[in-house]
């Protein structure tokens, strides 16, 4: 464990909690893409299947349970509890155009052709594109609530910190996982234009709005 990976995990945890609180407090999931949240729940489910069979550390197990619980709670709130506020008309990204190619790629490019490893690879590839419906929705609505931009910033920052963690681990431990690194690069690159808008607008007290 190194400081980049720890701050990455905490940034990820902050993002997940921020979103949960935003929906719970405002009792509304306006501006939130349900499709992205369903894909994140799928990412955690397919990645943490070894939760009970492969104990790494108390920290690892606790975080996995929190991620799983929060992601399912978020999906529940979007599609059940606060369904009336779900903005389905703007959440129109075709998720199947992501899930099917990612599923195929996981079969072709993986470390080991076993069910657990293919599902883990699927979760890594899916996570790298899971935010696309959310970013697409923001371009459709032309704006995002400030709390939602903080959520997205923390979420994007987590994988950027993981990239530094992988440089650290390669240098000090000789460890590297090319599948996770390539997917992590793609994932972080997808946030770049959001990062630019966030830093130039939101951090200057402006609302995030896109030229319609």
């Amino acid at each position: 464990m190194n400081v980049f990976r720890l701050t990455g995990d905490l940034s990820h945890l902050v993002a997940i909690i921020l979103l949960l609180l935003k929906i719970w407090k405002t009792r509304s999931c306006a501006g939130i893409s349900g499709k992205s949240q369903v894909m994140f729940a799928l990412v955690f489910t397919t990645r943490y299947l070894d939760l009970f069979t492969n104990f790494i550390s108390p920290y690892n197990s606790v975080m996995k349970v929190i991620y799983l619980g929060c992601s399912y709670a978020t999906v529940y709130m979007i599609y059940m509890k606060f369904k009336a506020s779900y903005d389905g008309n703007h959440d129109t990204f075709r998720a199947e155009f992501l899930i099917i190619p990612v599923g195929g790629l996981a079969f072709l490019v993986n470390h080991e052709f076993t069910p657990l490893e293919i599902l883990w690879t699927f979760s890594i590839y899916l996570e790298s594109v899971a935010i696309l419906p959310q970013l697409f929705m923001i371009t459709k609505t032309g704006e995002a609530e400030t709390i939602t931009t903080h959520y997205l910033f923390a979420l994007g920052l987590y994988r950027a910190l993981y990239l530094i963690n992988w440089i650290w681990r390669y240098y000090f431990e000789g460890f590297f996982d090319l599948i996770a690194i390539v997917a992590g690069c793609v994932q972080t690159i997808l946030y770049c234009d959001f990062f630019y808008l966030y830093i130039t607008k939101v951090l200057h007290g402006k609302k995030l709005s896109l030229p319609a």
Partner: peptide, 10 residues
């Protein structure tokens, strides 16, 4: 690194 023994990252 060879086959990843077990994925120790979240």
């Amino acid at each position: 690194a060879g086959r990843i023994q077990s994925h120790d990252e979240l």
